[in-house]
Computed example of a mutant assay.
Amino acid sequence: MISALDYFSALVQQDDDLPLFEAALAIAQDADPHLDFGAVQETVDSFAAEVKRRLPSGASDVQKLRMLNHYFYHELGFAGNVNDYYDPANSYLQRVIECRRGIPISLAVIYIEMAQQIDLEIRGVSFPGHFLMKLSVPSGEIILDPFNGASLSREELEERLAPYVGDYHQPDLSLATYLQTAQPRVILARMLHNLKALFSERGDWERMLEVQQRLVVLLPGDAAERRDRGIAYSHLDCPREAVEDLQAYLEEYPDANDAARLRARVEELRGAG
C-alpha cells in the first residue's frame, strides 16, 4: 500500500497538471490517516453541481461569481474561524468542509475547486498576511477575501499591505506585484508553512517532521527545508537522519548565518549517534 507521503509526492511531481484540491486534501492524511478522499471530493462536487443547476444558460462570469458567493458563504455558511484561528484543523480541508470554518487559504482552495467546476477561473493570490482570490474580467480584476467573499478596493488592499512591506517596500513595486496569481505549488507550500509555524511554536516535533517531509518533497531545491527537517529529526532522537540533513544544508550554504551553530549541533549529534 502506498504511503501518505509517497501519494503526496506523486501528486506534486509536475507543475503542469498538479491537482491543487487533491494535493491540499492529502496534507490532512497526517492528522487523519484513514481520510476518505472520494467522500470529500463527492461532497464538494455536489456543492458545485448545485451552483451549476441554479445558473442560467449563458451566465456571465460575474453572474457565476455572485451565485457561487451567495451559495458558499450564505447558504453553506463557510466563514473564517475567527474564534480559533490557530487550530491546525483549519488547514485540513475535510475538517473545514465539516465545520464550515477555516483560514483564508483553506477556504480559497475549496472555493477555487468549486469555481473550476462551473467554468469560473478564480485564482489564488499569495498576498502578505492574508491569502486572497481574484477573478479577471474585461474591466480589470476583482479581488476577493476568502473569509467572506467580499470584493476589496485598491484602498483596502493598500491598507492591508502596509504593515507587511514597511521599510523594506520598494517604491517601484506596484500593488499588482503582490496580486500575481499563485501557482498550486506556491499555495501548497503556504499551507504547509502555516502548519509548520504552528507545530514549531508548540514544540510538537512529530507533527513538525510530518510537515517537513512534505515540504522537502514539494520544494526539493530548497535546502532550508531540508535543514528544518534535520532540526525536527534532532528533537526526535534520530541523530543519523538529522546529521544527514544538516550536513547537506551546510554543504550548500557553508557561510550561512546559522552555519556555526549548526556545525556545533552536527558534532553533538554525531557524538550521540
Rank of each mutant, 00 (worst) to 15 (best):
Gly273Gln: 13
Asn81Glu: 02
Gln212Tyr: 13
Val137Lys: 02
Arg95Thr: 00
Pro88Val: 14
Cys99Glu: 11
Arg263Pro: 05
Val186Phe: 00
Pro138Glu: 15
Pro88Trp: 08
Val51Gln: 00
Leu250Ile: 09
Leu198Ala: 10
Ala26Ser: 12
Ser9Leu: 05
Leu135Cys: 12
Leu157Asn: 00
Ala260Gln: 10
Glu98Lys: 02
Ser126Ile: 09
Lys196Glu: 13
Met133Leu: 15
Pro104Met: 11
Gln213Phe: 02
Val125Tyr: 03
Gly129Gln: 09
Asp245Arg: 01
Arg100Gln: 12
His74Gly: 09
Gly230Pro: 11
Glu98Met: 00
Tyr233Arg: 01
Gln247Trp: 07
Val266Ala: 04
Asp119Tyr: 10
Val40Lys: 00
Asp237Leu: 06
Glu22Phe: 03
Met191Phe: 02
Glu42Tyr: 01
Ser200Gln: 10
Met208Ser: 06
Ala264Glu: 14
Gly166Thr: 12
Gly221Glu: 09
Asp16Trp: 09
Glu121Phe: 04
Arg185Trp: 01
Leu152His: 10
Ala197Asn: 13
Val137Ile: 15
Asp30Phe: 00
Ser151Ile: 02
Asp204Cys: 04
Leu173Trp: 06
Leu269Gln: 08
Ala49Tyr: 08
Tyr7Ala: 01
Glu155Val: 15
Glu22Thr: 14
Ala4Pro: 06
Ser106Ala: 13
Val40Ile: 15
Gly271Gln: 12
Ile27Val: 14
Glu210Thr: 12
Glu98Pro: 03
Ala89His: 09
Gly80His: 01
Ser60Ala: 14
Glu98Gln: 10
Ala223Pro: 10
Asn148His: 13
Asp237Ala: 14
Glu267Val: 15
Leu93Gln: 09
Glu75Pro: 08
Glu159Cys: 11
Leu120Asn: 02
Ile142Tyr: 07
